[in-house]
């Protein structure tokens, strides 16, 4: 623990950098996946193509990607923006399918009744279909969150800021404690972020918490009457 106490400032610094790089891709991939998921749901024949193309993004190896991106957009090799872009692409790969699945999970009866009420297509999407896809979207974004926070460390190999630097530095200097610190902190951030997402989900989707008791009671009642 001696190394940790001697380097608290630096560790804190890397943790903040790590968050600064990891958070934007989580948010961006969530947003960008919405139109993709909508397209996949709206045009069923195109669904396979859209989702397969999105998934293929995940097949691109990360290191080459981190070298190609700066060439394409003219940033420096150690610019954190490269990691943000790469991780956003990976996030989209995961999130597009979740969004399409989530939108497809909306009960057709509910969708039709919303249409019958006189929702315009745009309002119906945002006020009915998108929120009802919420639980599936949440499950998707939790995976994206964990994977992004973990993948952010790859930047360390190229000297890009973040907790990944603790790995490369610890490896070069043979400091097991430094490497362990990096691993533990990445896990802690991932767990904290996951908890935040779950709380956010509960807060935004209060109806998902109420269903079971009433349904159970009703089932029991029906069993008694028949």
């Amino acid at each position: 623990m001696v190394w940790v106490f001697n380097n608290l400032t630096e560790i804190w610094q890397h943790t903040l950098e790590h968050l600064q790089i990891a958070l934007p891709p989580i948010i961006l991939s969530f947003i960008i996946a919405i139109p993709l998921g909508w397209l996949a749901k709206r045009f069923p024949p195109a669904r396979g193509t859209i989702l397969t193309l999105a998934s293929l993004l995940y097949a691109i190896p990360s290191l080459p990607l981190l070298i190609v991106i700066p060439v394409l957009i003219g940033t420096g090799l150690q610019d954190p923006i490269n990691v943000v872009i790469a991780l956003t692409l990976y996030g989209i790969a995961l999130m597009a399918r979740s969004t399409a699945d989530g939108l497809r999970s909306v009960d057709p009866d509910v969708r039709q009744s919303a249409t019958a009420l006189g929702y315009s297509p745009w309002t119906q999407f945002w006020a009915v279909e998108f929120p009802l896809a919420g639980p599936v979207l949440l499950a998707g974004i939790r995976v994206v969150s964990v994977s992004t926070i973990s993948l952010t460390t790859v930047g360390g190999v190229l000297g890009i800021p973040g907790l990944g630097l603790l790995f490369t530095d610890g490896f070069q200097r043979g400091l097991v404690e430094e490497i362990t610190t990096g691993i533990v902190l990445v896990i802690v951030i991932a767990v904290v972020m996951d908890t935040v997402l779950v709380m956010l989900g509960r807060w935004l989707m209060p109806w998902t918490r109420v269903a079971s008791p009433a349904v159970r009671r009703r089932r029991n009642l029906r069993a008694v009457t028949t």
Partner: peptide, 21 residues
């Protein structure tokens, strides 16, 4: 259609209530 529907009441089987409202 959107305006017509707002002026015509519709009740369906399984109520079709919006579960999140």
């Amino acid at each position: 259609p959107v305006h017509l529907r707002r002026d015509v009441g519709y009740v369906m089987q399984n109520s079709g209530l919006l579960p999140h409202r």
